[in-house]
Amino acid sequence: MFSFKAKAQETEDLLSLVDSGGTTKTFIKSAFKSTRVINGHSLEFLSPGTMDFRILHRFGQLDQGYKNFFGLDQASMRMGFDFGLYRNLMIGVGRSTFKKELDGYFKYAPIMQSTGNKSFPMTIAIAAGITMNTSPWADPTINNYFSSRLAYYYQLIVGRKFSERFTLQLTPTMVHTNLVALHTQPNDVFALGAGARLKLTKRIALTGDYFHLFNGIERGVTYHPLSIGVDIETGGHVFQLHFSNATGMNERAFINETTTRWGKGEIRFGFNLSRVFQLKKKAKTDS
């Protein structure tokens, strides 16, 4: 009797596979080797139960020449901790030397690129974060408000891994700053970001991201941020060498305050270092 029931259940399971096309749903992985392209968020997520310790380091401007040892005498950095909670949800915190900012964010993907049964051809994710400027007040004699230190950003990330070699994503973004320096500057800045990855070898890939600002650009003062880099995967590390015209390394900073441009050679060399730690035992399935 038990044998008959088992065989009937097995037949039913096989029929269900036939009805659904005979394939199970599989989520696409490794669209990017990091949860960030260079500056901006990527469509990639950390595995549940993992922590990514990230160090982002950027030197001074190359065009200053030997006086500043081609930028190596200066440096700014961001140190962060990112945590994978679920397959499609992660959070993170960080601290930057640029304006001594603290930041935190979450990233969630209601739809992820997959193959097989009920598949979807791309990933759609949202990211939202907050930054806090902890620098001393410019004028401590006036009545300063804590809320003036805060800024927020909201992003929609839409991307697709087209092949094992190529990934492309678009990132519409809004940055809201509670207090701006001049009344002519907008509190809300809108931008469209683009990020891409081209895999060259098993462990090396070209990456790049660019954000085009639709408002908030001050002629001769601020510019659109562009970064180009090389990812080198070494076991549990992802080491990224890059060039960028942005100094800041969170969304408020690199979108609102990129004050140098590629056309004049005002770019900075830098590197991002990522080390992933397994904090929780991996589940048997990734569903």
Rank of each mutant, 00 (worst) to 15 (best):
E251Y: 10
K118E: 13
D231S: 08
I28G: 03
L150Y: 15
G195H: 06
G21S: 06
S244P: 03
L198T: 12
R275K: 11
Q9V: 11
F59R: 00
G129P: 02
H237V: 03
V18H: 01
D139E: 10
S30H: 11
F27C: 04
V18L: 11
T167P: 02
K199Y: 02
N133R: 04
A128T: 12
A6H: 11
T167M: 03
Q240W: 05
Q113E: 10
T201I: 08
H237T: 11
R275F: 09
H242C: 02
G159M: 02
T11A: 13
I28N: 11
R165Y: 12
I91N: 01
A128R: 07
W262C: 06
K67S: 15
N256V: 05
T207I: 15
T234I: 06
I204R: 05
A151K: 06
N39G: 07
F59E: 00
M122T: 08
R160S: 14
E257Y: 14
N178G: 07
K284I: 12
F59C: 00
S147M: 15
M132Y: 04
D139K: 06
P186H: 09
G208N: 03
E251H: 05
I217W: 02
N68T: 13
G236A: 10
E251W: 01
D63Y: 07
P110N: 07
F32E: 00
G65R: 10
Y210W: 14
L14H: 05
T258R: 04
N117K: 13
S163F: 14
W262L: 05
H57N: 13
V18D: 04
K29T: 14
S30A: 11
R203V: 08
F69H: 09
P121V: 11
E10Y: 08
A181W: 05
G92A: 07
